[in-house]
């Protein structure tokens, strides 16, 4: 619960972040690399890009594009295994958006029985920036997410007159370590429980009645079967386990995988239960809006619009769902 509040000027915000880095914290935030905004470790405040949505979501922090689970090596008659222990202690992720937080929230549900990833998800400290405006293709509000507020973060930054209003909880307090005299109790309007969103979620669930609809053929026409939409999505969790190495040593890795790709469901026998993009696209839309309602109790699209921007055909997952339901 963000129960305290403090005001920072531009200058103060900058020196706070630079101070954290100086104190040896690992600060991760949105930066521009080759013209692509993505999350990466920063060495000073000026690297941060705070007025754009990142191309790749913040899930990279806990679920990087490939990760080593353990390494193994053999010597004479012994096998050694070295577990990869990369914790996110001491890590602060700054510049998250409310949708990124919703994404992490979903990841916590999804990985509830994976202690390693769950531990990572619960260790880093999150600093969120409220969105003033929508970016191209965002539809978070349609899904009942408040772009101006998030209660799933440790620190929330909102632009205000001559500076920023900063709301924080106890974990946030640790990294802000403000002067007691500056701190006020948070004056923030709690989002009113949104009734219409419940209707919307129930409406989206009706997609399952349309499982055999002919319209899937039309909505999947533009899909080329790449993995972009899954790789940029904050809530796509699929990965592939790979062993790399030789008879002497090697490693086991997890690598991102995507349900849009033909190989995803292909069996060793050659049979593919999702033989064409029609089934693959349907699976993705159904998974986001229907299946996770049953498994995790909520829809797993957070409306960030990243997949729409990344898709070669710019397919709009939400509009397509509505198109099917029409």
């Amino acid at each position: 619960m963000l129960n305290k509040q403090i005001h920072y000027s531009n200058q103060q915000l900058q020196s706070w972040v630079d101070g954290l880095i100086y104190k040896g914290k690992t600060v991760i935030g949105p930066v521009k690399k080759n013209g692509v905004t993505c999350f990466s470790e920063i060495k000073n405040f000026n690297e941060l890009i705070l007025n754009e949505r990142t191309v790749y979501s913040a899930k990279e922090v806990v679920l990087p594009k490939y990760d080593i689970l353990f390494k193994f090596a053999k010597e004479k008659d012994k096998v050694f295994i070295s577990k990869n222990e990369n914790s996110l202690n001491n890590v602060i992720v700054i510049g998250l958006r409310p949708c990124d937080n919703e994404g992490f929230d979903y990841l916590r549900l999804f990985f509830k029985s994976d202690p390693d990833i769950l531990q990572k998800l619960n260790t880093f400290i999150s600093v969120t920036i409220a969105c003033e405006k929508k970016f191209d293709g965002c539809f978070c509000e349609e899904l009942g997410i408040d772009k101006n507020y998030s209660n799933k973060t440790d620190v929330l930054i909102k632009t205000s007159e001559n500076g920023y209003d900063i709301y924080f909880n106890d974990r946030g307090n640790e990294i802000l370590s403000p002067q007691a005299s500056d701190v006020k109790p948070a004056e923030i309007k709690k989002p009113v429980p949104n009734v219409s969103i419940d209707n919307k979620v129930a409406y989206l669930k009706k997609l399952s009645e349309q499982y055999n609809s002919e319209k899937w053929k039309i909505v999947s026409m533009g899909c080329l079967g790449c993995g972009s939409c899954a790789f940029v999505c904050p809530t796509c969790t699929c990965f592939d386990v790979q062993d790399e190495g030789n008879t002497q040593n090697g490693q086991r890795l997890i690598c991102w995988d995507a349900c849009g790709m033909g190989l995803f469901t292909k069996h060793a026998s050659g049979h593919n239960p999702r033989p064409s993009q029609v089934e693959r696209r349907r699976h993705r839309i159904m998974h986001k809006f229907v299946y996770t309602q049953d498994t995790e109790g909520k829809i797993s699209c957070v409306g960030c619009g990243r997949c729409i921007a990344a898709c070669p055909a710019h397919l709009n997952i939400y509009n397509q769902a509505l198109q099917i339901l029409q």
């Binding site: 010597e75 070295s82 790399e244 490693q251």
Partner: peptide, 9 residues
């Protein structure tokens, strides 16, 4: 190349 475990450890 991804670093492998090498002997002697």
């Amino acid at each position: 190349l991804l670093k492998k475990l090498q002997f002697p450890l």
